[in-house]
């Protein structure tokens, strides 16, 4: 509720168009590294297309030309050292061309030093818990009610009538734009994985282990993901929603959350 009213004041509500309706390709995402990952993905993809055109081209040509029904006479060669050296060496070179930028991106992905915001993400069967380390804000984030009502067998609710079916939560993760956010992942029970395509983050949340991931969002908006490691019967029902807001809105959100938490604590006493 607090989030809804606050964000609507700031004009940031509603589903974003971040998830296009008919996505065919990996999203470019909203961080430098997600764009780099996308570029790597496209580079390898185009190499595959190029190699495919050559290999399949030769093969299809042969299938038409060298068939018995058009009178082809079989040759009898079975070796060609030149060809074999070439088709071992050329792939090695291509692989090297791919490996270098991939390694560079990998190195940057792992550099989670000096974060502005640190959040401990804990997986539970079947929801997420977020704890902002420096702000003292923490909360659970579970599948939103409309989806909960629509998901059972014979619920009578058409999934198409539910906005962001299975991809909406009651309380999203709110983060500031342009700041380095570090996520510390762990789990309370079984393995989970925190996956948001637009942030190019997928990291396993494993009991007894703390994994790190980081991102610096360059755009505001709502970005959705899901648990990506099989974690039991409701594995498909623990989505992730990240709201990226401007720094001042983030600060306002933190303050409201804190005040809200204090109020709740007061009431509980």
């Amino acid at each position: 509720m607090i989030r809804k009213s606050l964000l609507s004041v700031l004009g940031l509500t509603g589903a974003s168009a971040a998830h296009a309706d008919w996505a065919l390709n990996m999203p470019k995402g909203i961080t430098e590294l997600s764009a780099e990952t996308y570029d790597l993905h496209m580079m390898v993809f185009w190499w595959c297309v190029a190699i495919g055109i050559v290999v399949f081209g030769v093969m299809i040509f042969s299938l038409f030309k060298h068939r018995k029904s058009v009178g082809a006479e079989p040759a009898s060669f079975s070796h060609s050292t030149t060809a074999e050296v070439l088709w071992t060496a050329i792939p090695c070179v291509i692989l090297l061309i791919m490996a270098v930028p991939a390694a560079e991106t990998m190195i940057r992905l792992e550099d989670s030093r000096d974060p502005d915001v640190s959040i401990v993400v804990t997986g539970y069967q079947w929801k997420w818990h977020y704890k902002y380390q420096d702000e003292g804000v923490e909360f659970y984030s579970s599948l939103a009610l409309p989806s909960v009502e629509a998901r059972p067998k014979q619920s009578g609710v058409d999934p198409f009538s539910v906005e962001n079916y299975l991809l909406e939560v009651d309380r999203p993760l709110v983060v500031p734009r342009g700041k380095k956010v570090r996520l510390l992942m762990t789990s309370n029970d079984v393995n989970h994985a925190w996956y948001v395509p637009e942030l190019a983050i997928k990291k396993d949340a494993i009991p007894g282990i703390i994994n790190e991931a980081w991102f610096r969002a360059e755009e505001t908006g709502t970005f959705r993901g899901q648990c990506a490691e099989l974690c039991g019967k409701d594995h498909g029902y623990m989505p992730i929603v990240v709201e990226v807001v401007e720094a001042d809105a983030y600060q306002a959100w933190v303050d409201t959350r804190k005040a809200g938490d204090a109020q709740v604590a007061q009431m509980e006493k």
Partner: peptide, 22 residues
């Protein structure tokens, strides 16, 4: 991918200038 590629290239080279039936 290199030895895997070698396999595929060898199959294609086997078909090359053969007299194929299907």
């Amino acid at each position: 991918a290199v030895p895997t590629g070698v396999k595929i290239f060898n199959w294609v080279a086997t078909m090359w200038r053969g007299a194929m039936t299907f």
